[in-house]
Amino acid sequence: MSHSPNCLNCEVQITGKFCSNCGQKTDTHRITFKHFIFHDILHGVWHFEKGILFTLKEAMLRPGKAALDYIEGKRIRYYNVFYLILLLIGLGIFIENVYINSLHKYHSFIPDDQSDEVNNPVYDFLGKYVKFFLALAIPAFSLNSFILFNKKKLFYSEHLIIFGMMYLGIIMITLVGNLMYFFEFIEPVAFLSYFADLIMPFLLIIYLAFGFYGAFGNDYKKWNFALRLFIYLTLIIVELKLLGFILKTILLNQ
């Protein structure tokens, strides 16, 4: 542990547990293997009250309110939302690659009316990278809320934070759905994969409504909020259709 009167990071004189200039802790340890594993990795990343798990929990249970907390300055406990989105997108792409490869490997289990779809390069590409392209659409989705839910007079960049937090929850919900698709290869429980396909859109709509109500529900009368939410969801569907059309056009013309 460091006993220097000055911060080891910026060399400003220190008087408490944290440097008043850069915020680094004053009880700096030598990086032993034990400290690296149990503090820097397990504690620093997975600590439930500060880090990845805390941010994931907030994104699932109170996304709108958590985003507002972050915007208002309560940020120290949160992992960077957009870094976390990239990590989960990578995990989602891996899971979807495994699933699609499994479909090809076990193509004899696929009904004839679905075989062409599975062997379609457009289907493969969109199945693998759809979350990445949806992340590129975050600016458009955030612009929708900036226009429709503007009573708080938040900046456009702050609406990016709000939808970023909710997109984090969307990815987690879809990851669970993606894992359920593997039940397709287990005959007694194959119905669960079709159930996931059926219920996923409803779960996502409910989650978005829940998240936006947490962020903006107190700003509008219920009928006004419901109307704005309906317009918002309609815009998202139109934008997703447009994005899908553009991607398919690009891929088919290559």
Rank of each mutant, 00 (worst) to 15 (best):
L233K: 02
F210V: 06
Y220V: 05
G211R: 10
F191M: 05
L247D: 01
N97S: 13
Q254C: 08
A67S: 07
G51P: 08
F155P: 07
P5E: 05
T55Y: 03
Y232D: 08
L88C: 07
Y79Q: 09
F183V: 01
P121D: 02
A66G: 02
F245D: 04
I76G: 13
I14E: 02
F210I: 04
N150A: 09
F182E: 03
I52A: 11
S108V: 15
Y232L: 07
L143R: 08
M165T: 05
L148R: 00
G73F: 00
K65P: 06
I14T: 13
L160P: 00
F225E: 02
I246Y: 01
N178M: 10
K50H: 13
I206S: 14
K65I: 09
M180D: 07
A196R: 10
L84R: 06
A190E: 12
D112I: 15
W46E: 08
G217Q: 00
G217M: 02
K65D: 13
P201W: 09
K128D: 14
H159S: 01
P121L: 00
I170P: 11
L154H: 07
Q13A: 15
K241C: 08
A226M: 11
H43L: 13
A59E: 08
N80G: 05
Q24P: 11
I85K: 04
L242Q: 05
R30P: 10
F163H: 12
V176M: 03
N178V: 12
I246A: 07
I147D: 07
F94C: 11
I171Q: 12
I95E: 09
D113N: 12
S102P: 06
N97R: 11
F132N: 07
G214I: 02
D219F: 04
L235A: 05
Y129A: 00
L126W: 07
Y156G: 08
P111Q: 02
A67E: 05
Y83L: 15
N120A: 03
L179C: 12
Y70E: 00
H47M: 01
L8S: 14
M166C: 11
G164M: 03
F109L: 15
I162H: 02
L134S: 15
H159R: 01
L91G: 12
I199R: 05
V45M: 14
I246L: 03
I171C: 09
S102C: 03
L154R: 07
E239V: 07
N224T: 11
I231V: 08
Y83F: 14
E184D: 15
F133A: 02
E49P: 05
F141C: 01
F185D: 07
L53P: 04
Q13C: 09
L227P: 02
G177Y: 04
I85V: 09
N6S: 13
N97Q: 11
V118A: 05
L240D: 00
A196E: 01
D40F: 10
Y232I: 03
V98S: 02
L233G: 08
R228I: 04
F195R: 05
Y194E: 11
A66I: 00
L126I: 10
R30W: 04
G92D: 03
A59G: 10
G164A: 05
I14A: 12
